[in-house]
Design a protein around this nucleic acid. Sequence first.
DNA 1: TTATTTTAGATACTATAGTCATCTAAAATT
DNA 2: AATTTTAGATGACTATAGTATCTAAAATAA
Lengths: 199, 199
Amino acid sequence: MTKNEHSKRRRGKELEHDLLEAAWNEFQDKGYDKLTMEGIAARAETTKTVLYRRWPNKAIILINSFKEFGPKVNMDPVDTGNLRDDLVTMMEPPIQLFEVLGKEAVQGLIADQVGDQIYGLFEHISGDEAPITKIITPILHRADERGEVKMDNMDARVTSLPAVLLISTVLSQGMLTKKDLVDIVDDVVMPVFKHSLDK
Amino acid sequence: MTKNEHSKRRRGKELEHDLLEAAWNEFQDKGYDKLTMEGIAARAETTKTVLYRRWPNKAIILINSFKEFGPKVNMDPVDTGNLRDDLVTMMEPPIQLFEVLGKEAVQGLIADQVGDQIYGLFEHISGDEAPITKIITPILHRADERGEVKMDNMDARVTSLPAVLLISTVLSQGMLTKKDLVDIVDDVVMPVFKHSLDK
DNA sequence: TTATTTTAGATACTATAGTCATCTAAAATT
DNA sequence: AATTTTAGATGACTATAGTATCTAAAATAA
């Protein structure tokens, strides 16, 4: 044994905690592009093998470390009384996320194919459903009761539209502002959702 | 000189042609995931540096080799007389593209950040405009003249919607069928485009 | 307490991306 | 024909991802 001579060998939850903490600190110091498996392992005083045993790549590690060590982003259930404002409100937390993680990381995460897990960063969501589905479903239910939409006529392509447009905005602009949200909702999402009434 | 003893040193267009041909053949043999810069260079009897001098990565090389050596996908200007059918027709060529390149390659190209160049595969498009813009603009002009839309009220987010939805469908399903096109147009794009009339 | 099982840790390895310095052939210019 | 310029050829190099294998510590079962 060459390094770490005095410390006990860590295991299980304790080790996992230390690994994710190292990943989070490494990300803060280096940024997403310079975040490497080697770097994380070195900071945690272990080796890549230990990381790969748990997570398949740095995108997944960062997501998990964010859940443990990142700032808590408030994602309370929304109920403004009308669909349009519910949607805008629902889409605000990702802005905070971009502020915390930065453009480079968010684009990196999307490029690394974990864009659809971005909503999963806000809370622990159980089951196999996409996080966006879990969040939008109660909003649409209430809108349906008020007669604003007809859920029976809305499929996954339609209900996932807010997430799809958030992601494509970030990819094309490297940015996400409040105005983007409002435009997405007013110019695209609302017309599509309303269309569910005339079928 | 160790290899290639008998052939003249190639240059300029001739060399570029050979490199792209090697890339296309290599892609046909190995598939996108196993396509490597080394492999392409070896097949062209040269080295990676020669490739990197021209193109930054394998995604861009494949796109360029497709333009030279891939099958020609018909992308005639569309004019069915109504917006809805123009849109569906406009979106059909990508299906052929997926048939030729395969799921792995298309997802790879999108992951490698060149998804927005997919429409550029159908023809030589000049200028800095996104290819999708060039294709959809005349369609929207005619629709505007017929009173089906109001172009003044449509921004880039709206006009790029067909391309965004094609890409997100491929990413989420790894597939693109005629039914997808029809649903995209009828359930999403048309309601959004029509909405430009009431502002 | 001892034997067994599990899993962390260390080392070495392969594959690929991408860069760099240098050499040299071929084209362009004088 | 001689010289200069351009750009292709080459091998070496670094960085990182990801894997395979072996050793040893900790947990557990006996």
